[in-house]
Write a protein that binds this DNA or RNA. Structure first.
Lengths: 109, 109
DNA sequence: CCCCTGTTTCGATAGCAGTCGATGCAGACC
DNA sequence: GGTCTGCATCGACTGCTATCGAAACAGGGG
């Protein structure tokens, strides 16, 4: 699974580690997805309904659904159906993994 | 310039902030670029020559040069010519900005 | 049971991104 | 000065991606 908690600044990434990380960073490499993630994460209760997300952008429903799927398949969010609506929630571990990977590791003497 | 030191988990990103951040994340969304960045950052002295980077991948010189340009234009690295060789160095502030943006902000009560 | 709403999936299209070979440019060395 | 090496840029090709409208699917309510 190539888990990586070591900052990429301390030692070179292996090809496998880079593959895993880049997959997630690529998911963040779109302004719409970044705002979707931010909307979900900062929403009350840590989760948001797709209907709330859709109205926040001048984009069609399928497009929002597509971006949510990209985020979901990158392991950054997960969805849960409750009755009529589907609620999305951020997976904090994924964010932390990325945040740690980018940590400048200023401790390099 | 839409600087953002607030984690995207605490409040929704504006469109401008998302534009700036996504530009950098997109640059990280490729395994080759991620490994290039890691190679540069973890290299002795914090900088690496292009010639060392090129031989680390089964890719052509122009392709490596292209990826370095993407990283450079994203503000993640900078290059400096010294004699025959060009040395690239990581800009730590950029990494820290991204790392902070992704911080899970577990402090949300 | 049928419809209505919310969400995803499908198919198509236009634009972007990764890769290469060829070429150009800047220093170094003879 | 000519040439050789290191690196960047150019032009082209291929594959991926963002977006949409149309259609399918899932629950809820009449």
């Amino acid at each position: 699974m190539a888990e990586c908690c070591t900052p990429l600044t301390t030692e070179p990434l292996t090809a496998d580690q880079a593959e895993v990380l880049s997959r997630r960073f690529k998911a963040l490499g779109d302004p719409v997805r970044l705002r979707l993630l931010s909307l979900i994460a900062s929403h009350e209760g840590g989760e948001a309904c797709v209907c709330e997300l859709t109205v926040a952008f001048p984009l069609s429903g399928p497009t929002i659904s597509h971006h949510l799927r990209v985020l979901r398949e990158a392991g950054l969010i997960e969805g849960q159906r409750r009755g009529t609506w589907i609620y999305y929630r951020v997976l904090p571990d994924a964010l932390q993994t990325l945040s740690q990977a980018l940590h400048p590791a200023a401790a390099l003497t």
